[in-house]
Design a binder for these strands. Structure first.
Length: 459
RNA sequence: GGCGCCUUGGCCGAGCGGUGAGGCACGGGACUGCAAAUCCCUGUAGGGCGGUUCGACUCCGCCAGGCGCCUCCA
């Protein structure tokens, strides 16, 4: 299994044996507002990785976090007059619901900054001891000069960084590139902890170093997140972590998922194209969303449009329809060699695609090619069984689709309505029969009229 | 300005130095109720101009267009 590594810009083999743990850390979000479509993309990409590692026999340990101590959270909580951690928790809960809606497998742990403050203080003390950080009246800063390879991940030279270093000016910084590990409490701030440097709170970045080492160990097998985190977040994490440990690498491979766009534009509230978790759960179907967001190579941008969403709905319905039709196969027989060969080919192709830097588009094509050669109605029961196992593995276990549809309408009621419709058809009352079929169709029930009579299944 | 990415048929999207996957939509056919679903068939598609090569969509250069990051950001 190999993955493209952002740091070395090359493919890195994951040298693991079946049963081995594969420890990964994926940067989570700052719960100051509703999660959105972009978070879904990242969650789905790493869910695919999580699932694939699992089915390939590894023991994935996925660690993620909430940055629940942050400027924006403090700002919002003051506006709303509630405790910052209560505000954060509100959105964390929404995020969990969102993940559940998307059928994302839970991580091994979701940690919060507020839960690891003592660990953070300890790590900052060590960094100061080692000469990688220094305390000032407005906080503790990491000394970028003390870490010569700074800029390697984001491919930025010292000069680039100097030019770019323009915000968060502090008269106490020794170098404009230095960043805060600990921020001294400002008068209006409503959350703080005591520390050797006075009351305050951690800066961004440091929590991921602390939590990943605490829960995942060192080095990590992989570290990931959205590509917008490459700089400065991950760059700073590397500096902190490797400075702390005294050796690298912090992570064996850096995986970054591409950004999501809405109708070709960046998603922004100001552009009016912001799609929140709440919107998504009301308006979109999780299988189709999954298909759409995983149909593109994970490092590339994915563009969400209503049109591409509709295409995804169609595709997923076709797949579910195929799966449902396998249940209607009743011909007895053994598995023919040719059929077995097609399935074996599909399975091999599927696995190889994902093993090659998670090529989900190619893996999906392998599924389509396989079932495209094996129309459900031409199979016998044993073959259908084999196909069902193939689809359970590829579509459900790895891609995370839910193929079993909820029983919105009772089976017996459907059977009765289908029977009623058959009588209507015998009486050549096609208009009424079609209407009945349409109504059932809107509840996800497909009726097929065959020579042997009508049959139905759910999509 | 610096660093980097992208441009494939109507739409979405792969692989590959040697006549271009897969999906969705469209069209034709079978079946049928001149229906739906299903099945079969159907597409001279890789921004432009050069170069390398026996041969390039695939490598190199230039140009055009689109985009990301440059300390809020999944």
């Amino acid at each position: 299994m190999r993955f493209y590594d952002t740091l070395t810009r090359d493919y890195v083999e994951i040298n693991k044996r079946p049963g081995d743990k594969v420890v990964g850390y994926v940067c989570g979000l700052t719960p100051y507002d509703e999660p959105h479509m972009g978070h879904a993309r990242t969650a789905l990409v790493f869910d695919l990785l999580h699932r694939f590692l699992q089915v390939r026999g590894y023991q994935p340990i996925l660690i993620s976090n909430f940055t629940d101590v942050d400027d924006k959270i403090i700002e919002r909580s003051i506006q709303k007059g509630i405790h910052p951690l209560a505000l954060a928790e509100q959105y964390e809960r929404l995020y969990y619901r969102f993940l559940d809606f998307l059928n994302v497998k839970p991580a091994y742990i979701y940690s919060r900054v507020s839960q690891v403050i003592p660990d953070i203080i300890e790590v900052i003390e060590k960094l100061i001891e080692k000469g990688h950080a220094y305390a000032t009246p407005d906080g503790v800063y990491f000394s970028v000069q003390s870490f010569p390879s700074y800029g390697r991940l984001s491919k930025r030279s010292e000069e680039d960084l100097m030019v770019g270093a323009r915000v968060e000016p502090s008269p106490y910084k020794k170098d404009p590139r230095d960043f805060a590990l600990w921020k001294a409490r400002k008068p209006n701030e409503n959350i703080w902890w005591k520390s050797p440097w006075g009351e305050g709170r951690p800066g961004w970045h440091i929590e991921c170093t602390v939590m990943s080492i605490k829960y995942g160990g060192y080095p990590l097998d992989f570290h990931g997140g959205g590509s917008d985190l490459v700089f400065p977040h991950h760059e700073n994490e590397i500096a902190q972590s490797e400075a702390l440990m005294g050796y690298g690498p912090f992570a064996k491979v850096w995986l970054h998922s591409g950004m999501l766009r809405i109708r070709g534009e960046e998603m922004h509230k100001s552009l009016g194209n912001f799609i929140s978790a709440t919107d998504i759960m009301q308006r979109y179907e999780p299988n189709a969303l999954r298909y759409l967001l995983l149909s593109v190579y994970y490092r590339d941008e994915v563009n969400f449009t209503e049109d591409s969403y509709e295409q995804a709905v169609q595709t997923v319905n076709n797949l579910i329809g195929y799966r449902a039709r396998l249940d209607l196969v009743h011909t007895e027989g053994d598995i023919r060699e040719g059929v077995q060969a097609v399935i074996d080919w599909g399975l091999r192709e599927f696995n190889e695609a994902l093993e090659d830097d998670l090529n989900s588009a190619k893996a999906m094509a392998a599924i389509h090619k396989t079932i495209g050669q094996l129309p459900a109605d031409e199979l016998d029961k044993a073959e259908a069984q084999e196909l069902k196992a193939f689809l359970k593995y590829t579509l459900e276990d790895v891609f995370g689709f839910r193929l079993e549809k909820s029983r919105g309408v009772d089976d017996r009621l459907i059977a009765d309505l289908v029977e009623l419709r058959s009588r209507l058809r015998q009486e050549r009352r096609f208009e009424v029969a079609d209407m009945l079929r349409q109504v059932l169709g809107s509840h996800g029930v497909v009726i097929e009229d065959t020579r042997e009579g009508s049959r139905w299944y759910r999509i």
